[in-house]
Design a protein around this nucleic acid. Structure first.
Lengths: 203, 203
DNA sequence: TGAAAAGTAAACTGTTCAGTGTAAAATGGA
DNA sequence: TCCATTTTACACTGAACAGTTTACTTTTCA
């Protein structure tokens, strides 16, 4: 043992995870056999199984790891003194950028590819996601409390904004129907969403 | 031959298609083996292969057939005399109802499940879809020509509306994250979309 | 009634793949 | 050097599945 052995072991483990991450993104979970994976990781198949006793275990590990690394804190706090316009612009631009980032898209591809025919598991994972109140939630709530925004149902507004973002920055890219967005595209989409939302809900 | 033979043959064929349609929806294409399928259709496996020489052929047949049957004509023509409000309401409600209908969702599930890792084929199919100018396109164009709507880029507006619809009536239902929408839900969502759009683009 | 068309059952081929067993080799610390 | 841990190569099992072959039966209709 153990210090160096640990390190050798860890290196192998890293190689496996890294190869899996890449392969799952490129070929999908079902398109990646454990043999292929072992070869890509430059590791014997048995070693893969020494680290992850089932394929499912490896899949979940990869998804959760990507998940963590993709989790960015979007931090725009409501400021009473500043114009709504600029604040919302900043907030939505951050959401847009995150949503259409390659990291986020790749995670989504793996997860959706894996969970597509297991709606219950998918539901659970998504429930966890939705549980955490977003920056957007807080900002809208603060704006309403401040009397500068006017709406009945917070959830509906969040849903609308979310739909506008995903419909233009996520789904088309997820399925590779549209190319990656340029910064100009992001800016234009953000501007339009901000205009739409403020036109409707600004007091 | 041939009249009655045709009929027996057709019955078998129907049974195959019907079983495939159901099974593909329930288990996905990959989750449905040709053996299972034959059993479900109460038909010998060989008969399946007599009608469809490859699984892929059957898959494409089922998708295209569902496609046809799902294709509804949404017909709301722009009327200069009537208020924008009511017209757009009617138009979007039709879109919403179609989008979240079980038929449309099931088709989408089969198609996405099948094409998920074949982005090129998916792109082709979607391109066909997008090619046909929608009722929404025409209506917006007419409203602009009539001077009652004001916008720069028609495509962007269509995209926004489309995102709002799909984000609330399609994606969550596709992945079975949300239940089927009630008529009240549809009405509420439609109302909100109409308000958002007219607030922004009505002259 | 008899020949053509269609269907059936079941075994079979060939492949892919998850997961296991094992014996030998590499690694690095004591 | 010796020992424990880890990795490796590789053969193997067992299952699933697309697609085929064959020998046989049923149906239809001329």
């Amino acid at each position: 043992m153990t210090e160096v052995t640990r390190k050798r072991s860890d290196k192998k483990r890293e190689a496996i995870i890294q190869a899996a991450t890449q392969a799952f993104q490129e070929f999908g979970v079902n398109g990646t056999s454990m043999d292929k994976l072992a070869e890509l990781a430059q590791v014997s198949k048995r070693t893969v199984y020494n680290h992850f006793s089932k394929k499912e275990e490896l899949v979940m590990h990869v998804i959760k790891e990507q998940w963590k690394s993709a989790l960015v804190n979007i931090g725009v706090e409501y400021k009473s003194a500043l114009p709504l316009n600029a604040q919302l612009e900043e907030l939505i631009l951050q959401e847009v950028s995150f949503t259409c980032s390659e990291g986020h898209l790749e995670l989504a591809r793996v997860a959706i590819g894996h969970f597509f025919y297991e709606p219950d598991k998918l539901k659970d994972e998504v429930a966890q996601l939705k549980a955490q109140e977003s920056s957007l939630h807080r900002w809208l709530k603060a704006g309403k409390a401040d009397g500068r925004l006017l709406f009945d149902n917070l959830e509906h507004v969040v849903n609308e904004i979310d739909s506008l973002i995903k419909g233009q920055c996520f789904w088309p890219q997820l399925f590779k129907i549209e190319d990656t967005l340029s910064d100009d595209d992001k800016r234009r989409i953000t501007d339009n969403i901000v205009a739409l939302v403020l036109c409707r809900y600004a007091n």
